[in-house]
Amino acid sequence: MPKVTWILHDGRQISAEVAAGHNLMEAAVANSVPDVIGECGGCLSCATCHVYVDAAWYEKTGRPGDMENEMLEITSAERTPMSRLSCQIKASEELDGLILHVPDI
């Protein structure tokens, strides 16, 4: 299973293996990653699963879709070019080793 690491704003790291096909918001919640909330359950309505993809991984995770791009306008933490809503990124073997930075909210 692909391994994903969340780096919290205080520098703490949480790593977990995530089943391929599961999205990285649900993976964060399942692993009690603080500040990735996912109130809407991953349906692009709350923007509370905002993360910054590590620059080395951004191209592999792909760009946000239209609706996601619009929801990124209302994130609590500042939007950057690395911003994604993690409910829209699915774990896959290609993302094994992925690093996500969790914003301070």
Partner: peptide, 12 residues
């Protein structure tokens, strides 16, 4: 409806 920008801005 399929317009997250309108939703997001309305919500804000």
């Amino acid at each position: 409806m399929n317009d997250a920008l309108a939703y997001g801005i309305g919500k804000k």
